[in-house]
Design a protein around this nucleic acid. Structure first.
Length: 581
RNA sequence: CGGGGCGUGGCUCAGUCUGGUUAGAGCGCUGCGUUCGGGACGCAGAGGUCGGAGGUUCAAAUCCUCUCGCCCCGACCA
């Protein structure tokens, strides 16, 4: 439907901010009548929201088709047996909603569709002659989120575009991965996400080697990312690293000092009047099997648990309790590697600890620390200890590429791309027959975009105090026609005529025919965020003119002659649309 | 799952501490009239078993117990 009268348009605008909404997108989505909450993390889309989502999907389709994608549709409900093949039925936690059907068969709601697409690929793509190939769908996903939040940004049921590519070689995958990356850049540009960057990311439960997340920069985002000033280095905090300087001096003799009641780094540093950089700390974790893991790092730095988990291959890590620490011969609050028997403990050390000189570390004796600890000098068989990057990057830390201070941002993850490799194809016997006549596992990539989340992210980046400022590419309508003082027949007649002319130009036009007071009409228009606005009133008609205004202009407007107005708007709309093509 | 907050017409809230007429206001909604350029006004209306269940009491939105739901912070999160 290209046109609509506001008096018939479903979706009440709300004057007041609903109590539950905190973020800009959540507030405006509710206030503008774009969506309504049904239950925690479950939303219905009203016509305005639905129109936007359909436009987002259309842009995504175009770009997926452009890189050779073929659209498919896989079921939301899947049999557990398929997920058992990949091992994820067991490995994924309670966010996977499992249930039984009437025949007591174990089923699940798909939270992503690697298994389902492999089920297709292994029968439909038997030969190398069909590869590379890419299938995508725009489908609902369900994840039983522990805590939905911020309106459409984190929900339980959501529409996602998920794409899967299949290749005969890693080289082919990498080449396609680049194409997908470019397609994503085009998509987010076309959606009007002005600040959207791809960053290195952790591949998490999907697995695979290389992956990128596309982050819409926004204060309310759930992710923290680091970018170098020149933009060459961009990474999620989970994987970000830096090129910290480690102080290296002549090693001084190890020396025990009394440090009564100094159990924290802050206390030790204050007591000895040293910077925290001159200290080292030891943290004790418990892995999934309850075994002790010791991590040592420079005192001012924080351990990055995402890096640690990845290194250990552990899905779960917890802080160890004091009893477990004591049983290993360490003293909580005064623990370190010094004099510790390392049998039966997995020990990991961050570069910052191994490569700094003369640190203050715990003496493994209550009330005492040691000065001038030097890792390779003071530990037996220090070279057997795994030294790795385990530190959490901080704002201002030096960029690993340029050394420039890293900038920290918050971001909303609107898309991600993964080089999956053969994780699923091997586990699920998804093979193709190669030129060599042999069977090989397919090399896979996968590529996701959250549609509703993207809509919310667009608002976060494009709004003022009064409502969203929709980019023309995804706006619910292109033109908002307002007739003030509809009781006057000359106004309603002129409006009806212009409404018809705009339609004849093929424009998507919303006509506010309600005859509301100017204030309410304008406030509603601001909440609907339509890029082009035309106002007709007795005042403008006296001069054979219309008031014209762009949504992003704020309160400013200009007058345009009524004659030829529809064609004039049409050409402006077309020109602007070209910038989103 | 831990911590905090909140459930009273469609929306925002008052009333709960200190139990007591018929449960209120503003917005929104319906009808009539007057208005008409950044959320007008008058009159007349519709709409609530005060989240639910039990209990205490002559009497419960209000006190007690249990329970359900929603939001925020954290944990978790392709």
């Amino acid at each position: 439907m290209l046109f609509m009268k506001l008096s018939q348009f479903i979706g009440q605008r709300l004057r007041e901010v609903p109590r539950d909404a905190q973020t800009a997108s959540h507030k405006f989505l509710l206030r503008g009548g774009y969506c309504r909450s049904v239950s925690a993390g479950l939303y219905s889309l009203l016509p305005a929201g639905c129109r936007i989502v359909r436009k987002i999907e259309a842009i995504i389709r175009e770009e997926m088709n452009r890189i050779g994608g073929q659209e498919v549709l896989m079921p939301l409900v899947l049999p557990a047996e398929l997920w058992r093949e990949s091992g994820r039925y067991e490995s994924v936690g309670p966010e996977l909603l499992r249930f039984r059907d009437r025949n007591d068969k174990e089923m699940l709601l798909g939270m992503t569709h690697e298994e389902a697409v492999v089920h297709l690929a292994r029968t439909e793509l038997p030969s190398h002659r069909q590869l590379p190939a890419m299938m995508y769908q725009i489908q609902v996903k369900y994840r039983d989120e522990a805590r939905p939040r911020a309106g459409l940004i984190r929900v339980r049921e959501f529409t996602m575009k998920d794409a899967y590519s299949f290749h005969i070689s890693q080289e082919c995958l990498e080449e396609y991965y680049q194409k997908a990356h470019q397609a994503y850049e085009r998509i987010f540009q076309r959606l009007g996400l002005r600040e959207c960057v791809s960053i290195l990311s952790d591949s998490g439960m999907i697995g695979g080697a290389l992956s990128h997340e596309f982050m819409a920069i926004a204060e309310c985002g759930e992710d923290t990312l680091f970018c170098s000033p020149d933009g060459r280095y961009r990474a999620n905090r989970e994987v970000a690293c830096s090129k910290l300087h480690y102080k290296q001096e002549e090693p001084l003799p190890l020396e025990k000092v009394a440090t009564p009641d100094c159990k924290s780094i802050e206390e030790v540093a204050a007591f000895l009047q040293l910077p925290k950089e001159q200290t080292g700390k030891a943290l004790f974790y418990k892995d999934g099997k309850g075994a002790l893991v010791l991590v040592s790092i420079r005192g001012d730095l924080e351990v990055n648990e995402a890096k640690l988990k990845k290194l250990l291959g552990e899905a779960e890590l917890d802080f160890a309790d004091d009893q477990l620490i004591l049983s290993a011969g360490a003293v909580p609050g005064y623990a370190s590697l010094l004099g510790l028997k390392r049998e039966g403990i997995r020990v990991l050390v961050d570069h910052s600890l191994a490569e700094s000189s003369n640190l203050v570390v715990g003496a493994n004796e209550a009330g005492y620390h040691c000065r001038n600890f030097n890792f390779f000098r003071d530990l037996e068989l220090a070279e057997q200890i795994q030294v790795a990057d385990l530190a959490t990057v901080r704002e201002g830390d030096p960029c690993p590429l340029s050394g420039e201070p890293l900038q920290m941002h918050r971001g909303i993850e609107v898309g991600n791309i993964f080089q999956l490799g053969t994780k699923y194809s091997k586990a699920m016997h998804c093979n193709f027959l190669g030129e060599d006549g042999q069977s090989h596992p397919m090399i896979m990539g996968c590529y996701g975009i959250g549609v509703g989340r993207a809509m919310a992210a667009v608002i976060e980046q494009n709004h003022d105090d009064y409502g969203p400022v929709w980019p023309l590419s995804i706006a619910p309508f292109q033109v908002h026609l307002i007739g003030l003082n509809q009781a006057r027949p000359e106004v309603s007649q002129a409006c009806e005529l212009l409404y018809k002319q705009l339609q004849e130009e093929g424009l998507e036009v919303l006509y506010d025919d309600r005859g509301e007071k100017a204030g309410s009409a304008f406030a509603d228009a601001d909440l609907l965020g339509i890029p082009f606005r035309i106002v007709l009133s007795p005042k403008t008609l006296d001069q054979a003119q219309a008031e014209f205004k762009r949504r992003h202009w704020g309160r400013r407007s200009e007058m345009l002659p009524l004659s030829g107005l529809a064609a004039c708007i049409k050409s402006m709309v077309q020109e602007e649309l070209r910038s989103f093509a």
